[in-house]
Computed example of a mutant assay.
Amino acid sequence: MIPLSILDLVPVREGGTVAEALRDAGDHAAAAERAGYHRFWVAEHHATPGVAGGAAAVVLAHIGHCTRTIRIGSGGIMLPNHNPFVIAEQFGTLDGLFPGRIDLGLGRAPGAAGILAQALRKDLHRAAEYFPQDVVELRALFTGDVDLPITATPGRGADVQLWMLGSSLFGAQLAARLGLPYAFASHFAPDHLDAALATYRQQFRPSAALEQPYAMAAMTVIAAETDAEAELLASSQEQSFVRLRSGDPGKLPPPVKDYRASLPMEAQAMLERLATARAVGSPATVRDRMARFIERTQADEIIISGATFDPAARIRSLDLVMEALGGPDNK
């Protein structure tokens, strides 16, 4: 079995608080570690009422203290929102706290609406244009293999594994050129998955960090005892997705029976687009759909995302998924 990992957006439930979301994320990470998952990532999102992971490095410090061995990291840090030196210090600090466990996934999108640029006092469009140079600078701050006028402390010499994230060919090409592992966000943007993976593998150049291409693909995965129960659980995340794409983001809502049938055709089609990177159902259903996805993509690792309104159902899901695929091979 290939390694399985977790992407947790630290969802804030309707009627819940940020404090509860952070507590639940810690419980989720500890459960993932017990079950044998390889990594536990959180993602930077801003100005989103239902997501409590905006300060990703701070959340990871919390996650690190809730776990002992699982790799933890960002999926990802949106580098145009920051400068490389500050991120080097933050993740160098995390490596000092949790040596040999830290991943730093880097994305180019700002992670929120245009109002974020004003709040950050940055020209995010221009910052995105400098993304490749900023990635190179950040790597040099960790490795020290380029003569820079300043040393990041903490940062220099930190054992931080850099990843390139993407949902288009741009990230695949940059990851290949820099010899970095690559993670594709197919759980919410599956259209360019096959082309991106092919581009990454064809153009990959070995680096000091990585001799051969290593690709991870994301899936929405929720398992329960029956297909019907799993689909009911998944309706919470589907409601959030539809609201987000409709310009009305909110907290994670309770599940709704037959939610898709209540939607207009346009919204149903929007959700159906995600089906190629989705495995929701009983353990047998999840096993079949994930096996077909892995065969199709030839991914080296799968990272799964799937928020449920009931935190206990999410923990039960990750146990069922691991059991369905035959248990961990990385303990």
Rank of each mutant, 00 (worst) to 15 (best):
A209D: 09
L210Q: 02
L210C: 00
E211F: 10
Q212N: 08
P213S: 01
Y214C: 02
A215Y: 08
A217D: 09
A218Y: 07
A218M: 14
A218P: 13
M219D: 01
M219E: 03
T220S: 15
V221Q: 11
I222R: 13
I222T: 05
A223P: 00
A223I: 07
A224S: 05
E225V: 06
D227N: 07
A230M: 02
A230D: 08
E231F: 07
E231A: 03
E231S: 12
L232G: 09
S235N: 09
S236I: 04
Q237S: 09
E238P: 15
E238G: 05
Q239L: 04
S240N: 13
V242C: 14
R243H: 13
L244E: 13
R245I: 11
R245A: 14
R245H: 13
G250N: 08
K251R: 14
L252I: 11
L252Q: 12
P253N: 11
V256L: 07
V256Y: 02
K257I: 01
D258F: 00
D258Y: 02
D258T: 00
Y259Q: 07
Y259G: 10
R260I: 05
S262M: 07
L263T: 02
M265G: 11
M265D: 09
Q268W: 12
Q268S: 02
Q268G: 14
A269N: 04
A269R: 09
M270R: 11
L271M: 08
E272S: 05
L274F: 02
L274W: 15
R278Q: 13
R278N: 10
A279N: 14
S282C: 06
P283G: 11
T285P: 03
T285N: 02
T285H: 01
D288N: 06
R289S: 05
R289G: 05
R292Y: 12
F293Y: 10
F293K: 03
I294L: 08
E295F: 08
E295H: 13
E295C: 14
T297P: 08
A299W: 06
A299T: 08
D300N: 15
D300W: 09
E301G: 07
E301I: 05
I302H: 08
S305I: 06
A307F: 08
T308K: 00
F309S: 00
D310M: 12
D310P: 09
P311M: 06
P311A: 03
A312K: 10
A312G: 07
R316W: 01
R316S: 08
S317W: 00
S317R: 00
D319M: 02
L320G: 04
L320F: 01
